[in-house]
Write a protein that binds this DNA or RNA. Structure first.
Length: 287
DNA sequence: CCACAGGACGGCT
DNA sequence: AGCCGTCCTGTG
């Protein structure tokens, strides 16, 4: 593997902070110079914006242009999506202006499943720390510019970890869930290759059979991985707050149940509900 | 020291 | 069916 570089003209639906800080990924970190470095698959990339260009540079297993186009969802027309969603109502329009550079990454399904099981009842700094330790312990090293990075462990690699090993890495009560899910996937009792060919409803049902995957985690996996089911609407405490505030003017949380919020979102935002969720979430989190 | 934040799950009504 | 305590660790 060797260093590669790829540049494209800057597009308006591409902002590093919007993409990497909207809660969809855990392995991208900001450098001193405002660029980001991240690990995905067997790639380590630095992304920066300079002179109205987006510059992707780093160690890339396959052709960097194709890798980047796939991972950063570059073939999807976000301008069209934003203008369609902006018509729906004022709050959504405002949130879209705020997070205009958001794109949904096409992340590896296996990595997304494990990452979001770890995300349960957890905060972002700690989730990031756990995933780094898992990768360092079980993943393959990748060296770039004298620094060592670690790929996320493969199914086989993570299968070497015992529940106790996972506990030592700080997973807490999620250790058992990650262990059992890894076993189900390794033995193909849940076959990830087959999941890809199913429809949205079947995918969700399958994911929900994995230990540690409940409704919210299932939706995140479907939205943030290569599955790209844009119609799901992950409801966490933040989204619940926004929806209650925006549409019901209820100062107290928990007035609306998760299912009710989900149903409302699908009714209002239709098959782009997942994107709407991201704009609203990012807006509320940062503002 | 305690309170709190964050989803899944199992046990209880 | 719905509600609620518990699971673990970091932060204030």
């Amino acid at each position: 593997m060797e260093e590669q570089i790829y540049k494209i003209d800057l597009i308006s639906a591409f902002n590093l902070e919007h993409i990497f800080e909207c809660g969809q990924c855990f392995r991208w970190n900001k450098e001193q110079n405002e660029s980001y470095i991240g690990v995905f698959k067997n790639n380590v990339l630095n992304v920066k914006i300079e002179n109205n260009q987006i510059i992707f540079e780093g160690i890339c297993e396959n052709n960097i242009k194709e890798t980047v186009e796939e991972y950063f969802d570059l073939k999807r027309d976000y301008e069209k999506i934003k203008s369609e969603l902006s018509k729906i109502d004022e709050p959504l329009k405002t949130s879209i202006k705020y997070g205009s550079g958001i794109r949904l990454l096409n992340q590896d399904l296996w990595e997304t499943i494990i990452s979001f099981i770890i995300s349960a009842n957890n905060n972002i700094p700690r989730i990031k720390g756990i995933i780094e330790r898992l990768s360092k312990q079980y993943g393959k090293p990748i060296i770039w510019k004298e620094k060592i990075y670690y790929a996320f462990p493969t199914i086989e690699e993570l299968s070497k970890a015992t529940v106790e090993d996972l506990r030592k890495l700080g997973l807490g009560f999620r250790d058992q869930r990650v262990y059992e899910t890894t076993k189900l996937i390794r033995t193909k009792q849940v076959n990830l290759e087959e999941v890809k060919n199913k429809n949205s409803k079947e995918i969700r049902e399958t994911l929900l059979t994995l230990p540690g995957v409940g409704p919210k985690v299932a939706d995140c996996i479907m939205l943030f991985s290569t599955l790209k089911c844009l119609d799901v609407f992950p409801v966490d405490v933040w989204v619940r707050r926004v929806m209650n505030e925006l549409y019901f003017k209820l100062p107290e949380e928990k007035k609306l149940k998760r299912e009710q919020i989900e149903a409302l979102a699908k009714e209002k935002y239709g098959n782009l509900a997942g994107l709407a969720q991201q704009y609203l979430f990012y807006w509320k989190r940062e503002a």
